[in-house]
Design a protein around this nucleic acid. Structure first.
Lengths: 339, 339
DNA sequence: TTGTAGGCGTTATCAT
DNA sequence: ATGATAACGCCTACAA
């Protein structure tokens, strides 16, 4: 049963049937009724294989993230998914397992899938092949957690947030301060947090320099010998800023194992505000980042990149970061959107 | 520039060009070289709009889960994604936000997307519209965490796991024992865990009956008045089995807030073995479920549902659950696969 | 190994 | 305003 058969049974031309089925062009009500009846009776279904696909409207968004195992990104994807569905879009997810080398191929695969656009978080925006590809093809995209001055992206002001943590530490009159961060090369965000943190600490000239511990961020293994000694020595910092919540929990674990009380003796602050940190006792001190909302926002910005329309939506939502946990409340650092 | 032009320039028929471009059918090496040269010189690109899409091989797997915010499911999706990519497949993810009413539409959307198959976790397999739909259309699918006697599914033996927790509690000579679980109606797994748990406890006739606390599983809010009183009374259980790790953490939080020591005074055991539970101090006692591997397995079973071939793959992997954490090691409960 | 011809749904164009 | 026709680009069964 094909469109010609239906046309014959309805006593019209195939073109008329097509117009009826696709609601394109004018149509006599009587004719429409006759055609619809035939379609219903015969159970005719257009042969998708021969349908000219409207590649310009494949209602699917491609998402590329480092890992779904990090709550940060599953929260983002969750937000993307929610807003995408609101617009009738599906979501294809690809994780790169923090492998920069996989990013390019992942983007190629997504483009091949003819997604309408791509939302992505990369290790770094510098010398990024995946990003170059998107730009070269003029493919709609939106960065999350990465920054670009003239392209759609949604991020928090990591520098500012870092300095706010520093403010807290100064207010608590800590004298020995340290930071634990993932390797800067695999996360430009961590570096910004570090810069804002150290810069602000310079206000107090009596402080010795900040102890920096760079670790392989996503290994859930314990700290190695060298790192441990930095945490355990008698002159170790009494306040640690960790570049993400997982590191913070790892550090808290390490300290507690050594009998050190957190937060009574040593302060530890994380970054992300993952939900799990708040069902612990005591709750993890952290910078709350609205990852879910960032996901929502990314979808709006992506669409905006094609047809300017979602700007107002982004404005309506109250995107902010704020301190929660055992240390203190603190002024929110604003999440900036570049449009 | 169309295929006919290329054919003319290469001095062959359009069919030959098509065969060359799609690697279908035999082809003379000389002819191939000539055609490829013409394609290169003219920069010819097939007109996608007229390409007959091979809907039978849309290399995409649809995944429907309750929520990406639960680490259990993001781990599963991560595994699915990994194995899918290994086979050159992409993954479309839909979460239902634990809304049973959204399941049917989610499946319809996935089928409309012409995914090759669907991997899903439902609230319950009883009277399930989404499942009926898949069966009706004879659509390839694989259940995760749900059970079916004659359809592809991957799950752990919740009954057995529950009884193993009971064994541990008996070995530790607890006399007052309780269980905290999400509403059974929204998780048939939780009910199985409960049944196995209580059944095993009957071995010790001196025990009073198990205190059951049913809660709204996914609310991250504290326990209400009624529930709290069950945890805090002087005759409250000294050992609690929670139907998942999030509940366990919530309970530990509650107890610690009240000054109760865990695990010294009260034992709490969770279920899932989410990675985060193990970077806490002390680590959360739990039943480890290999969610990532279950994701891998689900992909194999899905493919197996179409072309019997992946069975051996599933066998090679060492799917097991085992105890980790502060309570004890314990015999593994086997994860069973139905093929 | 290669060519021929027929088939698909959409849409531009033409005819009422 | 409404309906008919033909061309479009590709794939593929079948013939040579």
């Amino acid at each position: 049963m094909n469109i010609k058969d239906v046309a014959a049974l309805a006593g019209v031309s195939p073109a008329t049937v097509s117009r009826c089925l696709n609601n394109t062009g004018p149509l006599n009500e009587v004719t429409r009724a006759r055609i619809e009846k035939v379609v219903e009776l015969t159970g005719y279904d257009v042969n998708q294989a021969f349908k000219q696909v409207d590649w310009n409207h494949n209602p699917t968004i491609g998402v590329m993230i480092p890992s779904l195992l990090n709550p940060v990104f599953s929260e983002i994807v969750s937000g993307i998914q929610k807003r995408a569905r609101h617009f009738g879009y599906s979501v294809i997810v690809v994780d790169t397992q923090y492998e920069r080398s996989l990013e390019k191929q992942a983007i190629i695969d997504l483009i091949r899938q003819r997604v309408a656009g791509v939302i992505l978080t990369t290790a770094s925006v510098e010398d990024n092949e995946a990003l170059s590809l998107l730009r070269e093809f003029n493919f709609p995209f939106c960065l999350v957690h990465n920054q670009s001055s003239d392209e759609p992206c949604v991020y928090v002001d990591n520098y500012q947030a870092g300095s706010e943590v520093a403010e807290q530490f100064l207010a608590l009159e800590h004298k020995r301060i340290g930071m634990v961060a993932g390797r800067f090369q695999s996360s430009d965000r961590a570096k910004q947090r570090y810069l804002g943190f150290t810069e602000c600490l310079k206000k107090d000239s009596s402080l010795s320099s900040v102890q920096l511990v760079e670790v392989d961020q996503y290994a859930l293994t314990p700290f190695d010998q060298t790192q441990s000694s930095l945490f355990d020595s008698s002159s170790a910092p009494t306040a640690w800023f960790c570049s993400n919540d997982l590191l913070a929990l790892k550090l808290v674990n390490h300290l507690k194992t050594k009998g050190v009380l957190v937060p009574e003796t040593v302060s530890v602050v994380g970054f992300d505000g993952m939900a799990l940190g708040q069902i612990l006792y005591p709750p993890l001190a952290t910078i709350q980042v609205p990852h879910h909302d960032m996901g929502l926002c990314a979808v709006d910005l992506l669409f905006n990149a094609k047809h300017k329309s979602a700007l107002s939506l982004a404005r309506k939502l109250d995107y902010q970061t704020h301190f929660v946990g055992t240390v203190a409340e603190c002024q929110p650092s604003i999440m900036r959107n570049v449009l």
